[in-house]
């Protein structure tokens, strides 16, 4: 087994360009090491991504927030820029696994592992994040660029967002349903609402009908029934006939209520 530990993006690019047989890209290892006890590696080479400072940066660049692929969930959850501009993503990262998993697991690994229940995915889609990659076939994610919302003003309004997750237990849980929403508060009402459903299909998806229910509203409690109904319809369209459909159709009301509550708090405070 060859173990390569690049210390910069340039060294990483050089390592990726070398053809050394089957290669594993290792970051937090929270998905590649489970179940590895005593089993040989099914690879010829490991490239460790954890010693590359550029991949651990969170910084504003050209009206975008760059989040390096090796930023951990804990780092993202605690970052002031993420909390300020992309609160839903900070909330999602704060709910991934346990403290130990959040201290090691990375946003790049969360996306690369491609679990339908990946907690960061609905938020990255909601915020229109673009992935940066390197390698001949783009095989290594180096980071994500999230377009910054406009500065709050009377014309543009105040951007807000929220994330809710339903699992089998309150914490340290795999998502059964995720809901992420963003909006702009204008004249005391929600405007330009977007809603993304996750863990309710192979990949997360926008739910226009549910967003329309909230558009122009003050996130009033009475909207819960039509909001949850629109989400249930979207789930049915994405997983018709699946055994979990009946559960998810009904259970989506929980995250829907949480999102309404969070948005209404943003409106009033």
């Amino acid at each position: 087994m060859i173990f390569v530990r690049p210390a910069s993006i340039i060294e990483l690019a050089a390592a990726l360009a070398e053809k050394e047989g089957k290669t594993i890209l290792a970051a937090g290892c929270t998905d590649i090491l489970p179940g590895k006890i005593g089993r040989p590696w099914d690879a010829d080479r490991i490239i460790d991504l954890t010693h590359i400072p550029e991949l651990q940066q969170i910084a504003v660049e050209n009206n975008e927030l760059f989040i390096g692929s090796c930023c951990t969930h804990a780092q993202i959850a605690e970052n002031g820029l993420v909390q300020k501009y992309f609160k839903a993503l900070a909330e999602a990262c704060a709910q991934v696994g346990s403290v130990q998993i959040r201290n090691r697991g990375t946003i790049g690994g969360n996306v690369a592992n491609a679990s339908p229940a990946a907690d960061t995915m609905p938020c990255l889609i909601l915020f229109g994040a673009e992935r940066e990659v390197i390698g001949e076939n783009g095989e290594c994610i180096t980071g994500f660029c999230l377009p910054l919302p406009e500065d709050p003003s009377a014309d543009s309004g105040t951007p807000v967002s929220a994330f809710a997750k339903l699992g089998d237990r309150d914490i340290v849980t795999v998502a059964r349903i995720q809901l992420a929403a963003k909006s702009v508060i204008k004249d005391g009402r929600l405007s330009a609402v977007s809603v993304v459903l996750g863990a309710a299909g192979q990949t997360p998806y926008f739910c226009e009908e549910a967003a329309q229910v909230l558009e122009g509203s003050r996130a009033e409690e009475e909207l819960l029934e039509p909001f949850a109904a629109a989400l249930a319809e979207a789930i049915e369209a994405h997983i018709p006939g699946r055994t979990t459909l009946a559960y998810k159709r009904s259970a989506v009301k929980g995250p829907a209520a949480e999102i309404l509550k969070k948005l209404s708090l943003e409106l009033y405070y």
Binding site: R5, G28, C29, P34, I37, I46, V99, N103, R104
Partner: peptide, 18 residues
Amino acid sequence: MDGLPVHSCLVLAGQLEG
């Protein structure tokens, strides 16, 4: 690891440098 709780079953020896 650097003051943060981590699972030692999910860290590679090669990642310990520094």
